[in-house]
Amino acid sequence: HMTFVALYDYVASGETDLSFKKGERLQIVNNTEGDWALAHSLTTGRTGYIPSNYVAPSD
């Protein structure tokens, strides 16, 4: 899985969403939902949907 870094803070709007903080590292599990991606946080160990425009690929 590619690793991504959060560009902004995001507060989950539902139970299936994943909250994260700017700078948090995430792995995209499934990116077939258009503007949303299923992601796993390497920081918190949690998995949920995130807005895909809130993250960018990290080196």
Rank of each mutant, 00 (worst) to 15 (best):
H40C: 14
G23K: 01
Y8V: 08
L26N: 00
S41R: 01
H40Y: 14
A39W: 03
H40L: 14
G34S: 09
D59S: 11
N31P: 12
L7D: 04
F20W: 02
P51D: 04
Y54N: 03
T32K: 10
V5G: 00
T44A: 02
M2W: 11
D35Y: 13
S41N: 12
M2Q: 12
E15R: 09
L26H: 00
Q27C: 15
E15C: 12
N30I: 11
F20M: 07
M2F: 12
I28Q: 01
L42D: 03
Q27I: 15
N30H: 12
S58L: 15
E33D: 13
P51T: 01
F20N: 00
G14S: 12
L18S: 03
S41D: 03
Q27A: 09
D35A: 13
L18R: 02
H40V: 15
R46E: 07
V29T: 07
S19A: 07
F20K: 00
V29S: 08
Y8T: 07
H1C: 15
T44Y: 02
L42F: 07
T3N: 07
F20R: 15
I28S: 01
A6E: 00
L7F: 04
L42Q: 06
S52Q: 09
K22W: 03
S58K: 08
S13W: 09
I28W: 04
E24P: 00
G34N: 08
Y10S: 01
L7M: 09
S13V: 15
L18A: 06
G45C: 08
F20Y: 03
H1E: 11
T43M: 07
R46H: 07
T3E: 11
R46A: 07
V29E: 08
L42I: 08
L38W: 14
E24M: 02
S58G: 09
G14E: 08
R25I: 15
V55T: 05
S52W: 15
W36G: 02
H1L: 13
L42T: 05
S52F: 15
K21H: 08
S19V: 06
I50S: 00
L7P: 05
K22I: 06
T47L: 07
Y10D: 00
D9Q: 03
T47P: 00
L38C: 14
G34T: 08
H40Q: 11
T3C: 14
P51N: 05
V29Q: 08
K21N: 07
G23F: 04
N30M: 14
T32L: 15
D9V: 02
T44P: 01
K21V: 09
Y54T: 05
Y54W: 07
S19P: 05
T44W: 01
L42K: 04
I28N: 00
K21R: 11
P57F: 12
V29K: 08
A56Y: 10
D9G: 04
Y49M: 10
V11Q: 11
T16I: 08
A37F: 15
S58V: 15
G14Y: 09
I50C: 02
H1D: 10
P57I: 11
V55M: 07
V5H: 04
T3K: 05
F4P: 00
N53G: 12
V55N: 05
G34A: 07
K22Y: 04
N53Q: 10
N31E: 10
T47C: 13
A37C: 14
E15V: 11
T32G: 12
A6I: 04
A56G: 10
H40K: 14
G23A: 03
Q27M: 14
M2I: 12
S58A: 14
D9Y: 02
T43D: 15
V11W: 10
L26C: 02
T16F: 15
G45L: 06
G48L: 03
